[in-house]
Computed example of a mutant assay.
Amino acid sequence: MSLFKSIKEDSMLKRVVITGGVHGNELTGAFLVKKWQKTPLVTKNIKIEYLLGNPKAFKECRRYIDYDLNRSFSKKALSKDSYIYEFERAKVLKERLKSCDFLIDIHTTTANMGMTIVLSKDDPLSNLVAKKLSLEFDDVKILRWFSTSEGDFINSAVPHSITLEAGAICQGVLEPRIFFRCEEIVKRAVEILDSEINQDKFEIGKSVEVYDIVKIVDFPREENEPSAMIHPNILGKDYFQLKNGEPIFVTLEGETILYDGEPLYAVFINEAAYYEKKIAFCLCEKSKI
Rank of each mutant, 00 (worst) to 15 (best):
K243W: 00
L193Y: 06
P176G: 07
L41I: 14
T28H: 10
D68V: 11
M12I: 14
R62I: 09
D81N: 11
S161V: 05
K206H: 08
D212R: 02
E86P: 02
S149Y: 02
T110Q: 06
K131M: 08
D200R: 07
I204T: 11
A30G: 12
D101R: 03
H107W: 10
A168N: 02
I104M: 06
K237V: 06
F240Y: 11
E255P: 04
V173P: 01
Y259H: 03
S74D: 02
E271T: 02
R221K: 13
D66L: 12
K132R: 14
V92T: 15
E165V: 04
I169G: 04
E255T: 12
K237G: 07
N45L: 07
A157L: 12
Q199F: 10
D10K: 12
Y239V: 12
G114W: 09
W145Y: 07
C170A: 15
P226N: 08
S156V: 02
V214N: 04
I192G: 01
S156A: 15
P226A: 13
E150D: 05
D139L: 10
S207T: 13
A228S: 14
K201S: 06
V42P: 01
F219E: 04
M115H: 05
M113E: 08
S147T: 07
A228H: 00
I234H: 06
K80E: 13
V22A: 10
S99N: 15
M113I: 13
S72A: 14
D122M: 10
E223F: 11
R144L: 06
Y50C: 06
I142W: 03
D123I: 13
G254P: 14
I234V: 15
E209K: 15
Q199P: 03
V16P: 02
G114H: 06
K278A: 11
A30T: 08
I230V: 12
T19C: 06
S99Y: 12
A111H: 02
L3Y: 13
L258M: 14
F153G: 10
Q37R: 13
F179N: 05
E136Q: 14
G236K: 06
D66Y: 14
D10V: 01
I162P: 03
S134M: 10
P220H: 11
I279G: 05
P40I: 04
Y211N: 05
A90N: 05
V33D: 01
N155Q: 15
Y275N: 14
K277W: 00
G24E: 02
K201R: 13
F180H: 07
V22C: 10
N127A: 00
S72M: 02
E49C: 02
E276K: 14
P247D: 12
R63A: 15
K277D: 13
T110C: 09
